[in-house]
């Protein structure tokens, strides 16, 4: 019971902090718009895909991208907590390390989900017929994507001693995972090496699953839905174990 209350309060803190920071929210809303309307329009009219609206094509990719970047950024907030001393206050409390990790993870995951959902209304602007049913199908998939990503962020935060390494995450995690996820281009016609590099990336399966839900019949699935979900679940479990171990070992 007391552990649950501890998890709850840590969760609440993350969400409050996320919602209070207005510049970040503004950024979170506007960045996907730039991708969608400038990058998306440009690509649609210069190298269009036959039978597919490019904006509609990248929309699920942009949802995943926003979630990926938020997960990394909010995940490494553990480093800020350490820098400003608040982590100590949490770690000397009677709450177990596992609960602290859970609270942090659930909190950041909620932030990431909010970030992903905020983008959904833009789908109307580019003519995707969003239905309630579609949203209910997409949400569980987004949760599966979120959990693993947040655990990656928390793992790095536990291992990194200062914030200076954040640039490395940007270059070696964020961008490769984004570019290799099939978010921006279909993986059907690319060279084999690029295809395989993308197949190793769990996000590829997330993007594929989201597209299946949102684009309906116009999208030819890379993998069956069952495989997408299986890969995401495995990704979540593995990253959760790694993240929890790394976090519990911090002094």
């Amino acid at each position: 019971m007391s552990e649950l209350r501890g998890i709850y309060t840590l969760w609440l803190r993350e969400v409050k902090k996320f919602l209070r920071e207005k510049p970040r929210l503004l950024n979170a809303i506007c960045q996907p718009l730039l991708w969608l309307f400038i990058f998306g329009t440009g690509m649609r009219f210069s190298s269009g895909m036959p039978g597919i609206n490019y904006q509609e094509f990248i929309f699920p990719g942009l949802v995943v991208q926003a979630m990926l970047f938020t997960a990394m950024f909010m995940g490494v907030s553990v480093i800020w907590d350490r820098e400003f001393g608040f982590l100590k206050e949490i770690l000397v409390s009677p709450i177990s390390r596992t609960s602290v990790f859970l609270g942090k993870m659930l909190g950041v995951s909620t932030d990431v989900m909010i970030q992903g959902i905020v983008i959904f209304p833009f789908a109307y602007l580019i003519g995707i017929p969003v239905t309630v049913f579609m949203v209910f199908e997409a949400l569980p998939l987004m949760i599966l994507i979120t959990t693993g990503l947040v655990c990656i962020g928390l793992t790095f935060a536990s291992l990194m001693k200062s914030f200076e390494g954040f640039g490395l995450i940007q270059t070696f995690i964020n961008l490769p995972m984004f570019f290799l996820s099939g978010a921006l281009f279909p993986l059907a016609n690319v060279p084999i090496w690029l295809q395989w590099a993308s197949y190793v990336n769990p996000l590829t399966y997330g993007v594929d699953a989201l597209r299946t839900v949102m684009m309906g019949d116009t999208w030819v699935q890379l993998f069956p839905m069952e495989l997408d979900i299986l890969v995401l679940v495995c990704f979540d479990i593995i990253m959760f174990i790694i993240g929890k171990t790394a976090f519990c070992r911090t002094e």
């Binding site: 409050k16 400003f84 001393g85």
Partner: peptide
């Protein structure tokens, strides 16, 4: 603690 340990955004 000797060093500050409050969350200043709260």
């Amino acid at each position: 603690f000797q060093d500050p340990s409050v969350d200043s955004d709260m």
